[in-house]
Write a protein that binds this DNA or RNA. Structure first.
Length: 562
RNA sequence: GUCCCUGUAGCUUAAUUGGAUAAAGCGGCUCCCUUCUAAGGAGUAGACUGCAGGUUCAAUUCCUGCCAGGGACACCA
């Protein structure tokens, strides 16, 4: 790669005192590549940055005079590099040769990375809020795997605990007067909401619910059967959504799975003197924090904190996790920081990385929190269906000649792609507004724009056979820009494996698509002179590869036609 | 009350984690379908980066204090 070559060259001139960083300036006048290492070094050494910059330029140029078109130094001490056309052409041949593997990094340390995402609850429909965790988690999963790590996707199911007492109680109540054979997820949700509301004014109902949990936890046959039914109803309905979204997990271990281990976790914490008894409960105090991490209630019951610790232990022992990523909303920041500290204190975690991949809320159009209570509940399935319907309309409009089956296929790919891209193109940390028009926007910076670009490239490629090419025929400015952009792809991937921000990839793909659209708008491909045509076809093929790879990493399909 | 996060064109967001003239999309206004898909392309107008200080050669980014919005904070998940 060009970047690493330049870094090596600079290192030869200034030594290893400081890490050399090369950036790709947004502004063309600052070169293809640029470094501020002279400025940083000047500070350390107390020297004049311009002098250091000058010596870097001189030394680099004298070692490899043909590599660069020019090198400029700019006050207060930037060094800007323009690589020569020949270098870019050669690099393009490498990119072309690696095909769909371009961007995969080699010889990196392979880590076992557990990614905790999606986190659905049994007997609750998935809401628009779950979408973020699922999409971001899946994208990170794909990207980490692509860059050579072992990614382990584990959706931590909310399938145990107090709420099942309520549900079972409500369910049994309804069972008396009505048959409940075909109750839907939505129906279960309604039962739950209704019962909880009544419970507030009626302590009898609360007692019944408590009784039902106890029975469930002591493996009462009837309750276990109802609980299993809730699970199967949930999975049956969620299967549709998972199919639509193309999400897969390696594991779906939930709270019920970890439940038998919780007693041991508490005694381990006590034995290691990490936990103490306080106000009747067993808690872990983190540093001087006043708020303890409660692992056992005064009535003896365990909490999700306990389950979370058990989960970490299991992941470290069974999955040999080097890294555990929690793709969970911002609001859990405090809880997770407590958890991370607790497992370190207990010695469950040593050098492993624990990271909270946090994301903002999905807010309503008014930028206020969407609530499941006030009737504002937005079902994820409805959103996805609406997206597909809107996409279908546009396909009808743009491509009436296609057969129905193909139209439907495209509508699905485009509609889902739009929803996913809308989420993934934004910095996960900030809150996002739920706006139909924006989410399902098919123009501009959107999923469909990228898909459209890909489809156009494929359409051109379909119209011509493929032959050997010579990269020296690529010398227009837009072509050089495209090669430079392709060259950037592995760097983008690498950054994401460090920062876990998938929007870098979305951003990159958008820029690549923009350059590409601009390229074939101004330069003919199929009608170009023979040698040029072959070279441009190769360029298009390489771009199409990266677009497809990139989109797929984001979990978005790239259609051949649209 | 304590702690955490966010504040960037009219709207929705970027800014390579301290770099150069703050970048896009939507919306507005001009152009381009007898060249490979107009879900496209080429232009143009639009910003005192919430406010006030500080650190630095360099601040949207770091520090302090305000203002505004959101979130978390002992037996819910």
């Amino acid at each position: 790669m060009i970047k690493t070559k330049i870094i090596d060259l600079i290192k030869k001139t200034i030594g290893n005192d400081i890490e050399v960083e090369i950036s790709i300036p947004g502004n063309e006048q600052f070169g293809h590549y640029s470094t501020n290492v002279a400025l940083k070094l000047a500070k350390i050494r107390g020297e004049n940055p311009m002098k250091i910059a000058e010596s870097i330029k001189y030394e680099v140029l004298s070692t490899k005079p043909n590599f660069f078109e020019k090198i400029e130094i700019v006050p207060p001490g930037f060094v800007n590099f323009w690589v020569s056309e020949k270098v870019l052409q050669n690099e393009f041949e490498n990119i072309y040769k690696s095909g769909g593997k371009w961007g995969k990094s080699k010889n990196k340390i392979k880590k076992n990375i557990v990614i905790d995402y999606c986190g659905i609850n049994i007997a609750k429909p998935m809401s628009i809020g779950h979408l973020r965790s699922t999409i971001i988690g899946q994208a990170l999963y794909n990207i980490l795997k692509f860059s050579g790590h072992k990614a382990i996707g584990d959706s931590h199911l909310g399938d145990w605990g107090k709420q099942f007492g309520v549900l079972i109680a409500a369910y049994k109540e309804k069972q008396k007067d009505k048959k409940l054979k075909d109750i839907s997820l939505e129906g279960l949700m309604e039962l739950y909401v209704d019962y909880t509301a009544r419970m507030k004014n009626d302590s009898k109902l609360e007692d019944i619910a408590k009784e039902e949990v106890k029975k469930l936890q002591s493996k009462n046959k009837e309750n276990l059967k109802i609980w299993k039914k809730f699970r199967s109803i949930t999975f049956k309905e969620l299967k549709n959504i998972f199919n639509l979204l193309g999400v897969k997990f390696d594991h779906q271990l939930g709270e019920s799975f970890y439940n038998p281990m919780l007693g041991d976790i508490v005694s381990e914490a006590l034995r290691k003197k990490v936990a103490v008894k306080s106000e009747g409960a067993i808690v872990i105090f983190i540093d001087d924090d006043k708020t303890p991490f409660i692992i056992q209630k005064s009535d003896g019951a365990y909490l999700y904190a306990t389950t979370d610790i058990a989960t970490v232990k299991y992941r470290v022992n069974k999955f040999k996790a080097d890294s555990i990523l929690y793709v969970v909303g911002n609001e859990q920041t405090f809880h997770l920081s407590q958890l991370f500290n607790a497992v370190k204190k207990m010695g469950i975690i040593k050098n492993q990385e624990m990271a909270h991949i946090k994301f903002g809320l999905v807010l309503g159009e008014d930028m206020k929190k969407l609530s499941t209570r006030g009737g504002k509940h937005i079902s994820l399935e409805d959103v996805l269906k609406e997206a597909i319907i809107r996409a279908k309309k546009i396909v009808e409009e743009k491509n009436p000649k296609l057969i129905l089956k193909e139209k439907e296929k495209i509508a699905k790919i485009v509609g889902i792609g739009a929803v996913k891209y809308n989420d993934l193109s934004q910095n996960r940390q900030s809150d996002i507004a739920f706006q139909w028009d924006k989410m399902l926007n098919f123009e501009g910076n959107s999923g469909p724009y990228l898909q459209y670009t890909y489809a156009r490239l494929k359409s051109i490629l379909r119209k011509s056979g493929f032959k050997k090419f010579n990269s020296k025929y690529l010398n227009e400015k837009t072509e050089m820009d495209l090669i430079l952009k392709l060259e950037e792809f592995p760097l983008v991937i690498e950054r994401i494996t460090i920062n876990y921000f998938p929007h870098y990839l979305a951003d990159y793909l958008f820029e690549l698509a923009k350059l590409t659209n601009s390229f074939y708008q101004s330069l003919p491909v199929l009608k170009a002179e023979k040698e040029i045509k072959k070279a441009r076809l190769a360029l298009i093929k390489a771009v199409a590869n990266v677009l497809k790879t990139g989109l797929n990493l984001l979990g978005i399909e790239a259609p051949e036609k649209m």
